[in-house]
């Protein structure tokens, strides 16, 4: 066992890089550390109790609520945030119209199908949908619904989100 982590520096592996976390209270949530210490504001904080899913990130390949992970306990884990998805899925990256940076096929489908309104839930949904389609490339409607049941969207009514997932499934099938 390594020495216990105190309030000095520790290091997290985020989006393929070792990132030092400095001058932080070690009880902070992973969400807080990602946003406030590491400058990665993609994961959103809303309920802070695991109900809304807007803070969803990948930890060791699982989609988890980063607000419910104590950041210091994630030392040694692979963390991927919405900012790291293009790098994780280079073959699926496309250049979005209207914005200059690259996005993944899932992000592009959300734009094209109109699966975004206020946008607050979107990063968490994008991560959850990537996680679903990585494990299950051709999900049933029920599997899609269950897989995003932990991501609450109060604007879209979900119809256009389901359409976006379906669009990605069809494009990936055609390209495989």
């Amino acid at each position: 066992m390594n020495d216990p982590i105190g309030n000095e520096m520790y290091s997290l592996h985020v989006n393929g890089q070792d990132r030092a976390v400095m001058d932080a209270w070690v009880g902070e949530s992973l969400l807080y550390v990602l946003r406030e210490r590491l400058g990665l504001p993609g994961a959103k904080g809303a309920c802070e109790q695991g109900e809304c899913g807007s803070c969803t990130v990948l930890m060791d390949g699982d989609a988890v609520c980063s607000c419910l992970v104590m950041a210091a306990t994630a030392v040694g884990s692979e963390i991927v945030t919405v900012e790291g998805l293009v790098e994780q899925n280079p073959t699926m990256a496309v250049t979005a119209h209207a914005i200059t940076s690259q996005v993944t096929d899932v992000q592009q489908a959300f734009i094209t199908e109109g699966g975004v309104q206020c946008g607050f839930c979107t990063p968490g949904l994008i991560v959850a949908v990537h996680h679903l389609l990585d494990k299950n490339p051709d999900p049933t409607e029920l599997e899609v619904k269950e897989s995003i049941s932990g991501n609450i969207c109060r604007c879209t009514g979900y119809g256009r989100i389901f359409a976006a997932v379906e669009a990605v499934v069809q494009v990936r099938k055609a390209n495989s």
Binding site: S29, E48, Q49, C67, L68, M70, A72, T73
Partner: peptide, 25 residues
């Protein structure tokens, strides 16, 4: 602490300020 899904809610809402944590995950 195991997965943290209960304890982190208490910490996030300032209901718990633990002195020391042993993470079992």
């Amino acid at each position: 602490i195991q997965g943290g899904t209960d304890m982190m809610v208490e910490i996030n809402f300032n209901h718990l300020k633990p002195h020391n944590i042993i993470a079992l995950r």
